[in-house]
Design a protein around this nucleic acid. Structure first.
Lengths: 315, 315
DNA sequence: TGCAACTAATATGCATTTCATATAAACCGT
DNA sequence: ACGGTTTATATGAAATGCATATTAGTTGCA
């Protein structure tokens, strides 16, 4: 079956006159009659009752007319939808972020994107930095917000990824509001020594886990791991319950009840949050996404716009 | 755009290999490459990333693949649906009946049809006999159950209709249950004289109105019209309220509370209920409908199967 | 009843499209 | 570097689609 023939059929059904229909279609009457006959033979049904003088739709022709119209409309819509996706105006974009990203300004950036591209459906996957790299390589997500450090780099199973650093969050100390830190923020890192610590499990984020361990070692502070949890809400809950303190890489935070936050004295190397994606991914949607994030960052912190073209190799 | 090209595209997308796809399609590779290029040019988008050795879908190609698959499926379904309608297994059938048909065995006949053709959607229009003839000629309904008498025939604006008598209902007397008829059914028609009568309005059914008037005149009984109503529920309500009696052409009746029914001494000419439709209507659905009704009638009353081929002319 | 008009079907030839064969060019693994 | 593999290009043949000319049946009117 051929959409062209359906168009012919619909036109003849509209006009109920082969001559006029042919004129409307920019052709002559004989080949039009022929095409309708071919369609009828192909379907094995008479679409028109025709005398040598009059044409009318058969009852089955009326049914098929509705189907044909619908099919033609759908074919146009299929192309139109695809074009909207091509222009990056519609479609589906899967992104990854880390579970505690909800506590950062990231949701505002994403809100900005959704505001600018209201027809785009966003799928947000909560994953560790390593999980995002895997998901990118598998094609599960189109872009990821990953945590990394200049020291460790990022573990990447295969392939090169494009990255742009979009945030350099300070390390934030989170303590129970009953803790003495709530009124007297620590002036020296040494004050953290032996404080009961609530740790993210290594499986939930190797980069940040290793960073915390290395941070304590580097500064010669004794780490007193009290509990471990696999999700920020659990970690914060345990902190709020007074079971210990924790560190988070955040630029801002809506502290939940029961905890207080304060910035730590400069910790180097600083953590970085990077947007990462596959350079092979030629989706305009993705380009719009990265561009929106760039534009959102630019007015706030020019330094954050520093573009890195480094490929990330398997470690 | 052409469904054939979409089929080519989907096959190449499935195989990701022009040679294999061509083999699967029963053609050679060069024209397939050509057709894909033509499709890409027509859409103005690259559907595949291809090196001289490897083929993979572009991101927009993935989007269009989903659209193409859906469109091909819909095209098949469109034909399949039409075929089901052609075989009379599915579709929509509009029929007309008279408002008081709900009190006759007609619903059981229709239930039988719906049982045998569960995919058929039935539209039942409540109309007078004349309204049904008009609706048939306008194409609003496919078949109608009309009341007529050998005397009057049926008023028909234009065209000939095919008819088959399917019932010859007796005239049933409907009286309030407080009425003396409730215990002592009238033995002679004369007993009806001057009884307050609830009459269907002439606009709601000219045939039956004229029949009632003529019935009283023919038998020399004085008709005492007390009230008029345009719907059987109203008429029966007024009877149940004790305001009068009425006559209905029914073979059976689920008498509502407050009224009693009894058959009248033979009234000639007898009323007839006929199934009527346009002979031009070649719908298999309609043929199945008339056939089902014939088969339903046959075992119950062989006499009712008497087929009439009379055309009904404008009166 | 017969003629003129109108309309769809058929016949025929040409133009375009589609396909197959042959060949070239690029890529990969050895 | 080379052979195998795969896509792209070139070219001619077959098929398809279209236009012109013609036929045949129908309707309306004289």
């Amino acid at each position: 079956m051929d959409l062209k023939r359906l168009r012919y059929f619909v036109t003849v059904a509209d006009e109920l006159h082969f001559g006029r229909a042919a004129k409307k279609l920019g052709m002559t009457q004989p080949p039009l009659s022929q095409q309708i006959q071919l369609l009828e033979n192909e379907l094995g049904m008479r679409l028109f009752h025709r005398t040598r003088r009059h044409v009318e739709l058969s009852s089955i022709g009326k049914v098929f007319l509705a189907e044909a119209r619908s099919l033609l409309k759908q074919s146009e819509e299929a192309v139109a939808r695809t074009r909207r996706v091509q222009r990056g105006e519609a479609g589906r974009l899967s992104i990854g972020w880390m579970p505690w990203s909800i506590l950062t300004p990231l949701p505002y950036i994403i809100r900005e994107f959704c505001h600018r591209f209201p027809e785009v459906h966003l799928d947000v996957h909560s994953l560790s930095a390593e999980g995002q790299v895997d998901a990118l390589n598998e094609g599960t997500i189109d872009a990821g917000f990953v945590l990394w450090t200049s020291d460790f780099g990022l573990p990447s199973r295969s392939g090169r990824l494009k990255t742009e650093i979009i945030m350099r969050p300070p390390l934030v100390l989170v303590a129970p509001d009953s803790h003495r830190f709530a009124s007297h923020a620590p002036l020296e890192l040494a004050e953290l020594a032996n404080q009961p610590y609530i740790l993210f499990k290594r499986e939930s984020g190797q980069v940040f886990y290793d960073y915390v361990i290395s941070f304590y070692q580097r500064n010669g502070i004794q780490l007193n791991i009290r509990h471990e949890a696999d999700h920020p809400s659990t970690v914060l809950g345990l902190v709020a319950a007074g079971l210990g303190i924790t560190l988070l890489p955040l630029t801002s935070m809506h502290a939940p009840p029961g905890v207080v936050c304060c910035e730590l004295p400069a910790a180097s190397p600083r953590l970085e949050i990077a947007l990462t994606w596959r350079p092979q991914n030629d989706s305009t949607l993705l380009a719009n996404f990265t561009e929106t994030i760039r534009e959102y960052q630019r007015p706030k912190d020019a330094a954050m716009d520093k573009k890195t073209e480094n490929g990330l190799k398997a470690g």
